[in-house]
Amino acid sequence: MKIAAIQMRSGLDPEANLAALEPMLAEAAAAGARYALTPEVTMIFPENRDQLRSVAAPFEGHPQLRRIGELARQHNMFVHIGSLAVPLEDGRFANRSVLFSPTGEIAATYDKIHLFDADIAGLNAYRESATYRAGEEAVTAEVGDLRLGFSICYDMRFPRLYNALANAGAELMAVPAAFTVPTGQAHWHVLLRARAIETGSYVVAAAQGGQHANGRATYGHSLIVDPWGRIVAEFAHDEPGVLMAEIDPKQVTEARQRIPALRNARDFVVPRLQD
Rank of each mutant, 00 (worst) to 15 (best):
P58K: 11
N95C: 07
S101P: 02
A206W: 05
Y154S: 05
A213N: 07
N76Q: 09
E234G: 06
S129K: 08
E246N: 10
V270K: 11
A26D: 08
G169P: 06
A72G: 05
E40D: 13
Q64C: 10
L65E: 13
F116M: 14
S201N: 09
S83I: 14
A36F: 04
D13K: 10
H187I: 04
Y219K: 07
D267L: 13
S10H: 01
W228C: 11
A206G: 07
R73N: 11
G69A: 07
P271N: 03
R193K: 14
V143T: 13
K2D: 07
R147E: 11
V181S: 01
A107C: 12
D155N: 05
P14F: 10
G91I: 08
P227N: 05
A16F: 03
V175Y: 04
I247G: 13
G122V: 10
R266Q: 15
R73P: 03
L71I: 11
E246T: 08
Q211M: 10
A125R: 14
G215I: 12
Y35Q: 07
R53S: 15
R258L: 15
P249W: 03
N76A: 14
R49G: 09
S201F: 10
A207Y: 02
V86T: 07
K112L: 03
E136F: 07
R34S: 13
A85P: 01
G122M: 01
A245P: 03
I152H: 09
R73K: 15
V242F: 02
D50Y: 00
I68H: 08
D90Y: 01
A164C: 00
L99Q: 00
R230I: 04
M24Y: 05
L273C: 01
A261K: 00
D145W: 08
N95V: 08
N124T: 11
L243H: 02
L25V: 13
I197T: 03
Q185I: 15
I3Y: 03
A85D: 01
V203H: 04
R216T: 08
H80P: 02
S101F: 01
G209P: 00
Q74D: 09
A166K: 00
R195H: 03
M173A: 15
H221N: 12
R160N: 04
V252R: 04
A186H: 05
N167R: 12
Y110E: 07
S10G: 13
W188E: 06
M8G: 04
I224Q: 11
V79F: 08
G135K: 06
M77V: 10
Q64D: 09
E22P: 01
L192P: 00
A30H: 04
A134R: 09
Q211P: 02
G210Y: 07
P176L: 05
E171T: 06
P23C: 05
G209H: 04
E254W: 06
Q211T: 11
M24L: 15
D238R: 06
A118H: 02
A121N: 11
L37E: 00
L191D: 15
E234I: 06
V41Y: 03
D238G: 11
R92A: 08
V181F: 10
N167V: 02
S10M: 08
T131Q: 07
